[in-house]
């Protein structure tokens, strides 16, 4: 098991290298020059050239890449061109809202999707199944920005239950943070619950017809226990997979929701960095997200072995 994790971590390094290369060259393929953007329309070519030199943007691309990789290897993702702070620091500052947003969203999505999927499978073809499938289809197709605006209008503006936007003052209490996170988490929870519902339903349908479920019934245990212990216990692997993928997506891609709710998260940071061609920030953020993505996948693999003894060998 440990050897397996070791091998996976080695593979992770390779993945990160490829991601680094891809990110580095793709961002530079996009037209636009940070130095020119920073100095504005009035800048002389000399000024631009000086700034480019200061940030090492005048060196050959390949050399820039190697220099950046060397820095990364020591844990230093470079200096932001616009923020006047190291990329690592900028990322860490923005990590908290993104992390909690992802966690709460996943919790809400799972709390909706798993019971709905189970009920849908158990009462397959009945009205409850049709209702759940219809709602899941709806949730999967609602744009998150639209649902976000509706939630803001309804729960923040009309009822005043939650703040409209932002993440509170820098010294705000955890409870206040929770209030700020609730609406965006609810939006992402609802939208992401659709996929979890469908996976849970499909996985449960597979298992409910299995011979060992019939054995469990023949033992005389209650139907609830048959469904939850015997069927659900065996339906977990695909469900964990989709939960992990959802979490990874949430960490890397809650950009729209963060923007709608004015949350100072990683998504927000990346968007502004892209608009300003802040290469080090784009690269650093994407690299960090890729690493987290890969680590989540590794964690999923480890969790498999906990829920399914057959994987343990």
């Amino acid at each position: 098991m440990l050897a397996h994790i070791g091998r996976r971590l080695a593979g992770l390094l390779l993945v990160l290298f490829l991601v680094a290369a891809l990110v580095f060259f793709l961002t530079r393929l996009a037209p636009g020059d940070p130095a020119a953007l920073m100095l504005g329309d009035q800048a002389t070519p000399e000024d631009v050239a000086r700034l480019r030199e200061a940030y090492g943007l005048d060196k050959p691309l390949l050399l820039q890449f190697v220099l950046w990789l060397k820095e990364c290897a020591t844990g230093n993702l470079g200096q932001s061109i616009f923020l006047q702070q190291p990329v690592t620091q900028a990322l860490l500052q923005r990590a908290e809202p993104t992390f909690f947003l992802a966690m709460f969203s996943l919790a809400i999505a799972a709390a909706i999707g798993i019971p709905a999927g189970i009920a849908s499978a158990v009462w397959r073809g009945r009205p409850i199944d049709q209702a759940v499938s219809g709602l899941a289809m709806l949730a999967a197709n609602i744009p998150s920005f639209w649902l976000g605006l509706i939630f803001i209008q309804l729960f923040a503006v009309r009822f005043g239950w939650f703040p409209v936007a932002g993440y509170g003052a820098p010294d705000a209490s955890f409870f206040e943070r929770l209030q700020h996170l609730f609406l965006p988490s609810a939006v992402l929870g609802v939208v992401n619950s659709a996929l979890i519902t469908r996976f849970t339903r499909a996985s449960m349908l597979d298992v409910l017809d299995a011979d060992f479920v019939r054995t469990a019934r023949a033992k005389g245990i209650s139907e609830l226990r048959v469904v939850l212990r015997h069927a659900f216990g065996n339906a977990l692997v695909p469900i964990i997979t989709v939960l992990g993928l959802t979490l990874a997506l949430l960490i890397g891609g809650a950009i729209v929701t963060e923007t709608v709710f004015g949350l100072p998260g990683v998504g927000n940071l990346v968007v502004s960095a892209v608009l300003r061609r802040d290469y080090p920030v784009i690269q650093g953020a994407l690299l960090a997200v890729a690493a987290i993505y890969a680590l989540i996948n590794l964690a999923i693999d480890v969790i498999y072995t906990l829920v399914d003894p057959r994987v343990r060998q």
């Binding site: 011979d211 060992f212 054995t215 469990a216 023949a218 005389g220 245990i221 216990g233 829920v307 057959r310």
Partner: peptide, 22 residues
């Protein structure tokens, strides 16, 4: 439900799939 497993029990054709794998 109270009878099944207690007073009437059943064994099945497929031993490979009739036990809960987890």
């Amino acid at each position: 439900q109270a009878l099944r497993g207690a007073e009437i029990a059943m064994i099945f054709q497929e031993p490979m799939t009739s036990l809960n794998p987890v």
